[in-house]
Simulated scan of single mutants.
Amino acid sequence: ISRKRWIEIACATPARMFGLYPRKGTITPGADADIVLYDPNTTQVHSAATHHMAVDYSCYEGRETTGKVHTVLSRGRVVIEDGHYLGSAGHGRFLKRDTCQYLR
């Protein structure tokens, strides 16, 4: 699929479904965009040891996939880089949802 279609599927459509568009799902002035730098050619092996979650298991344990997130920026700050979490508690912000845009 094209890069434009991938962004529509992965970003804009979910934001519309959850009533958060255009606050999420687009990179425009005033939007609360999280930007992901993704390398579609890198392979990785999934493991609970490398996930940034409060669980000790992964249903994808040992599975090799192609494509990997390199860097994540949240509200202008780097929060993940080279597999390391650099964020801090309290950085997130609650966004009140609206109705799904497809149901209006």
Rank of each mutant, 00 (worst) to 15 (best):
S2G: 07
S2T: 15
K4C: 10
K4Y: 07
R5E: 15
I7Q: 12
I9M: 10
C11F: 10
T13M: 04
T13V: 13
P14T: 05
M17I: 14
M17S: 05
F18V: 09
G19C: 02
G19M: 02
G19I: 08
L20S: 01
Y21E: 08
Y21H: 13
R23K: 13
R23C: 01
R23G: 04
R23E: 10
G25Q: 00
G25Y: 00
I27Y: 13
I27G: 04
T28S: 12
P29S: 09
P29Q: 03
A31F: 02
A33F: 03
D34E: 13
I35A: 06
V36E: 01
V36Q: 00
Y38L: 04
D39W: 03
D39T: 10
P40V: 09
N41C: 08
T42E: 15
T42V: 14
T42K: 11
Q44H: 10
V45T: 15
H46Y: 12
H46K: 09
H46Q: 14
H46L: 11
A48I: 08
T50M: 00
M53P: 01
D56I: 06
Y57R: 08
Y57Q: 08
Y57F: 13
S58N: 02
S58H: 03
C59P: 07
Y60G: 04
Y60R: 13
Y60I: 10
E61Q: 04
G62S: 05
G62C: 04
R63Q: 15
R63L: 13
E64Q: 14
E64N: 09
E64W: 04
T65S: 11
T66P: 00
G67Y: 05
K68V: 14
V69H: 01
H70Y: 09
T71F: 01
V72C: 01
L73D: 05
S74M: 12
R75H: 08
G76V: 07
R77M: 07
R77W: 04
V79Q: 01
V79R: 01
D82E: 13
L86Y: 08
S88M: 10
S88Q: 15
A89E: 13
A89D: 14
G92F: 09
G92Q: 05
G92D: 08
F94R: 06
L95N: 12
L95A: 09
K96Y: 09
R97E: 15
T99Q: 15
C100G: 10
C100P: 05
Y102V: 09
L103K: 11
L103I: 14
